[in-house]
Design a protein around this nucleic acid. Structure first.
Lengths: 203, 203
DNA sequence: CCATTTGCATACATTCATGTATGTATGTGT
DNA sequence: ACACATACATACATGAATGTATGCAAATGG
């Protein structure tokens, strides 16, 4: 294949699509869903709305793609963190990997879109597959690999839920804080969770 | 004072104001902030927008009044629950009273408005006093009565934060669930928290 | 090298929500 | 009873956001 002077058309197209998604993420990050309009996204991406509606038939489709990317990021970060996690305590390791995902500022994007989907039926329909996949992945009864890590007894599952809900609560707190700044006590809570998990009756 | 055949003007005015707030709560509850418009509220209240803008100069003002009422409800429910709570374990009692507030479906209304305030500067300005009051009330370092209940050591505060964040996480989960239905594991998590608090090193 | 597709911009039509200005009837104080 | 205020409705002006239809230049392929 001959060396091309410029990028091929499909490459630039994919790059534009990625730029639009990145712009949507940025806008969601610091303006929230309510103010993430088509023009807002396009201004950030440096294109007109023509470009946007060429790549996405709908705003809902753009948001779905955005949520998908954010979820993928969360998963990737968690996976990457898992390689460094404490191998002796499965739950402690899980806490670290999960917090690598939920504790990241980008999780605010997921919250924004997710919450918005409740109201907009079109958006909800578009987001449904992504959300459902995420929900299944986070439910020990439906995800055996997860159950293997966090345990299967009722107490284990309850503790797992506690960990998750606390993380989500802190992520929400960050999302509503001006500038999405982390609250002061996040690390304290995570440390406490690890400590509690170490002291739990053995499985 | 002679018995009046009809309500006085100010009474009916206050009733109308209350009806508008109730309509806003209902709309926020099942349509979310994004779809809670002036017409939506007024249709539910059975009046025209003239009535709304007569009682509230702004939509932001309506939302502020709504959030204030919801926060008051939460406080009232917590206070009421406190009379029934376990008197032997302060933290256990606190968990019960707090969950009486956060666990109530109406908390979704607070989440909706609160999150929206991040984007809308006018709304944020209007809501700021209510939010700030709430934040102070929920911070042991700033609320001595609370500190007396949950403890003052670093570990105590961390545990208190864990309780709170988990409750908020569950409230959010309920808010994004279709129909705002409670998730299955809420009571399990609350029970676990109580159990954990009983096993904590004494203060 | 020409025909066609692709990628994006421009312009338009439509919807919808806000806020304001104005009108009116009913209650209220003197 | 009369002047005035209050409570709400009606009508209007404006702005913003969406989605679509159209236009054009560049890339692709036969």
């Amino acid at each position: 294949m001959p060396a091309r002077a410029r990028n091929t058309q499909v490459e630039r197209s994919a790059a534009m699509r990625a730029r639009l998604i990145a712009a949507a993420k940025a806008s969601l990050m610091d303006s929230g869903y309510g103010r993430t309009t088509a023009v807002e996204v396009c201004v950030r991406a440096g294109v007109t709305r023509g470009a946007l509606f060429h790549h996405f038939v709908d705003l809902s489709e753009l948001f779905a793609a955005t949520l998908e990317e954010v979820c993928a990021d969360i998963g990737r970060r968690s996976k990457e963190a898992a390689t460094h996690a404490d191998p002796r305590h499965a739950i402690v390791a899980y806490i670290e990997t999960a917090w690598a995902g939920f504790g990241h500022p980008d999780f605010k994007i997921a919250i924004e879109v997710w919450l918005a989907a409740r109201n907009d039926p079109s958006l909800r329909k578009e987001l449904n597959p992504v959300i459902e996949r995420f929900r299944r992945a986070a439910t020990p009864q439906l995800n055996d690999a997860l159950a293997a890590r966090v345990g299967r007894s009722a107490e284990d599952v309850a503790f797992y839920r506690l960990v998750l809900e606390a993380m989500i609560g802190m992520a929400l707190g960050r999302a509503v804080a001006p500038g999405s700044k982390p609250m002061g006590h996040e690390d304290d809570v995570i440390d406490l969770l690890k400590q509690l998990s170490r002291n739990r009756p053995n499985r």
